[in-house]
Design a binder for these strands. Structure first.
Length: 259
DNA sequence: ATGACGGTGTGGCACCGA
């Protein structure tokens, strides 16, 4: 099976591209971030016509996440239980597969603006809460994938300018420590399970010909628990949609699992 | 040092993203 994540930067604008991508890449799971629309405007019908179920958690203008799935999802959780959050950033659900239940956690992680700001503090509190909740989730759901826009550059090789951007947002030691803490829960970065081209990124700035110059960051990730890591067969970034006429600034990331 | 690009909202622009 294939599971994918894509920050679409407004589903209202990107819906035709998402549907076209799904037709060309009929993945079993597509985790979407930055819907930028409320639940009453979510296009469930369009996904149903394409052969998909959908569950969403949106809000006006900012944030918003959804899970698009071939089979119906159950046990849907919105945001991090016990963490009071005005922003819609997490949706989790379970799929029943021939290999057993598969828990999906889709997150639009906090950006954080800059170290020392209120937004950065919020990012740290949000990451603390996520980590505690995921530890419990992993106890309850051995087959778990944590996927989404992490807004964290895990290592220097995941940035177009690791020296110039050292210590700046998405690159700080604090953010990277949180990423490693997630791995320490028993998760693996599926992208690094396989050989990859150098300078592989998942986001490029709209400005200054960022994509054309491949000045990007790898901030969209699919982390797999141990039973899923054992059956992982590939993980790739699909750069093609970034070349569309009206692209998201992010590209989809796709992981392939046996069974 | 700044702004560049794109999306949203209700605007004559500001805010936010990464």
């Amino acid at each position: 099976m294939k599971i994918a994540t894509w920050n679409v930067n407004s589903l209202a604008v990107r819906l035709p591209q998402v549907l076209a991508w799904l037709q060309a890449h009929p993945v079993d799971v597509l985790a979407l971030q930055e819907l930028k629309l409320t639940d009453d405007k979510f296009p469930h019908d369009a996904f149903e016509l394409a052969g998909y179920h959908s569950v969403c958690f949106g809000q006006k203008t900012y944030n918003g996440v959804a899970l698009i799935t071939r089979t119906a999802a159950r046990d849907v959780v919105r945001n991090i239980p016990g963490f009071d959050d005005a922003q819609a950033r997490v949706i989790a659900a379970t799929l029943d597969t021939p290999s057993g239940p598969l828990r999906l956690v889709n997150g639009y992680f906090v950006n954080g603006q800059a170290p020392g700001t209120d937004k950065f503090d919020y990012k740290m509190r949000w990451l603390d809460a996520l980590q505690g909740w995921l530890q419990r989730e992993l106890g309850a759901h051995p087959r778990l994938a944590l996927m989404g826009d992490f807004n964290i550059v895990p290592e220097d090789r995941d940035s177009y300018d690791p020296v110039g951007l050292q210590g700046t947002i998405l690159h700080t030691n604090e953010e990277r420590a949180h990423f490693r803490a997630l791995l320490a829960l028993g998760l693996a970065d599926s992208f690094r399970l396989f050989e990859q081209p150098e300078q592989s990124f998942s986001w490029w700035d709209y400005r200054m010909l960022g994509f054309q110059k491949n000045r990007g960051l790898r901030i969209d990730h699919i982390l797999l628990s141990e039973p899923l890591t054992a059956v992982a067969r590939a993980c790739t970034v699909d750069r093609a949609p970034r070349k569309n006429r009206q692209p998201s600034d992010h590209a989809p990331v796709v992981a392939t699992l046996d069974a």
